[in-house]
Design a protein around this nucleic acid. Structure first.
Lengths: 202, 202, 202, 202
DNA sequence: TATGAATGAGCATTCATTCAT
DNA sequence: TATGAATGAATGCTCATTCAT
């Protein structure tokens, strides 16, 4: 019962919920299981979170806020677009792999959020996406990236692959996070780069 | 009430369940809603499916069986590996987009299947994956594809992107299925092809 | 458990609920207590009633339907208005005292019904009220009843008294139902009759 | 937040509770809602009231104490019983209409009080009732009122009607409080007066 | 083949109340 | 006097599944 975790209760509940949602799914995890794992009672949880889906929202919202803030720093840096894009992509893969449960849980279960929360998170996500896309477009204007492929689609392609990583990768497996990140970024940037391919001249 | 659908009941139930699962999620759809939408009663459904999760299993199993059979035909064809891989990739994107609900539902909810069914579908999925990977490896041996990137990882990268398509693409949107497929295959093959990139010589 | 009651389950549930609501109040009676007293499980109850408040609605709706039908028969009969009104009033008191729990429960708890059900029952109640009021107005036109008192108000006065009977009267007490009914009707009609009082000439 | 209400907190809490109970019912109003509407926190309320039902008890207890004190003044006055009864009745209707929420709330929810509080309020109520009944009996002995009707029953009849007024009357409606009071008293006294009716000679 | 009444276990949520501060 | 975090028990309701017919 003594959890040996002295973080504030809201943080502890989010951490516990993230782990349990990743293990058994959002719908497969009861509020009772969450609070039991955190060593408190339901009332304590509802003191901080108005509903179970607030946990789900908050889990991804916090990660996305972190990633957005970091992305903005990379995007507004110096140097050619490709270098800034690469740095941003390395970073988003690193933080995504470091928060694999959060990513997994969210993309599996965001459809279970009530409409208005879904809208809110989609709006946050869209802002992130647009910042990333702007980097791709900058690279296309510079001539580093193929102009023939819609930047929007390329970004979706990349993040699709990233968000699904947990379906096959595990931190204790043979490939470490950095390695996977390098390969993913390589596959993405090589696919995009001028000289590589099929969309040139479009 | 008259559904105007004269397919056998099992097929009708699967079609209805796929639609409802895609709309409201697997856990958000009750058996009662499924049978009501199919115009029958619960007993009728339980006559054909032993449990609700049989529907989920069957939905993806049928699509995967179809895609596996087609993949085998492409894989065992003539010509250079890249051509066969491209044809297989075009095909899997086309069939995936044509059965977008099935793909969405399954990758969202496979974690809710009981252990043994999860194992079964993972085994089927692995067989599919390995056949696809073999094509990539053949291309690497032929020298068409970069040998530096693990074929397994490349295949996972590609299917990650494909399985997430429904998070942003819609059949009535500005890009039609063929266009999306072409871009995705382009991004994938360009990223993989010799001469494009970072993994050469590894 | 064997209830020894072979009425259909819906009727049995309503009977049990009426008794328990009268004893402990609507809010003080749990669905669990109702189904336990009826010897079934919650699922069985929810098979017939969509919500707990359906029980409350149905309890009064059924009594009111009965009383409305009887009132219409008395109202459309032959003879002077006073005689028809007296017969109707005798009848409504008799049926109200025979269903005292229903009356008590409803007038205590109707404010807990969801808005649309409250509206429905109010509309039913209004139809009943208007039929009764028409009898009073007829007596006023005939000159039997004082014209100075608004018929609406007189009817509300009378039913106020009737609906509160359960706060002081009990079937096993010294006064039997018929006696109480006679007195109430006497007090009401004497108060209304020409020659008795203060509203004449208004 | 600043309530603009400088009455002592207990009074403010009772006023707020009365309004909320009248709007949403006793069980439909949470302690949290009461304290929020009063601009304080739960601890403050529990400092003055030991339990939620103390609010309910106090709401009616205060009104009843007021009405009892006034009734005693009218009862112990000079003149014929009918005049004193009329004055008392006018007064009780006036104060009841002026505190309509209190009356409504109490007669809807008194059954939710714990046994001992219910007993206490019933005893207070009985004292009030007996004082009023004594006036009726005095009138019967004087020959002004029909002796054939039990005074107890007549008083219950009258207060039944009065306590239900809020089910149909509203201060902003076409009839003002004084008018309603006059009619109610007229209907009651005319029903009771010698020469009007059916109970004479009993 | 199909019905539909009934089960039983589970779920998210609410809430009056307490108590250390 | 007053706060607000936390409790613990209860509540209405849902739902996959069974089974006699």
């Amino acid at each position: 019962m003594a959890s040996g975790d002295d973080r504030p209760l809201p943080e502890r509940l989010l951490a516990v919920a993230t782990r349990l949602f990743a293990e058994s799914g959002y719908e497969g995890t009861s509020v009772q299981e969450i609070v039991a794992a955190a060593g408190v009672t339901k009332g304590a949880m509802y003191h901080y979170f108005a509903a179970k889906d607030d946990l789900l929202y908050e889990i991804y919202h916090r990660l996305l806020a972190l990633q957005t803030e970091r992305l903005r720093r990379f995007a507004s840096g110096q140097g050619p677009a490709e270098e800034r894009l690469r740095a941003a992509a390395v970073d988003v893969i690193e933080t995504s792999l470091a928060h694999l449960d959060e990513v997994t849980v969210f993309f599996r279960s965001m459809h279970l959020l009530p409409a208005e929360k879904q809208k809110a998170v989609r709006a946050e996500r869209r802002r992130y996406h647009e910042c990333f896309r702007a980097l791709v477009e900058e690279g296309q204007r510079e001539g580093t990236f193929q102009a023939g492929v819609p930047a929007d689609l390329a970004v979706n392609f990349f993040f699709g692959a990233v968000h699904q990583i947990s379906t096959w990768w595990h931190p204790d497996g043979p490939l470490d996070a950095t390695t996977v990140g390098d390969y993913y970024i390589g596959l993405f940037l090589d696919g995009l780069r001028t000289g590589s391919g099929v969309f040139e001249g479009r």
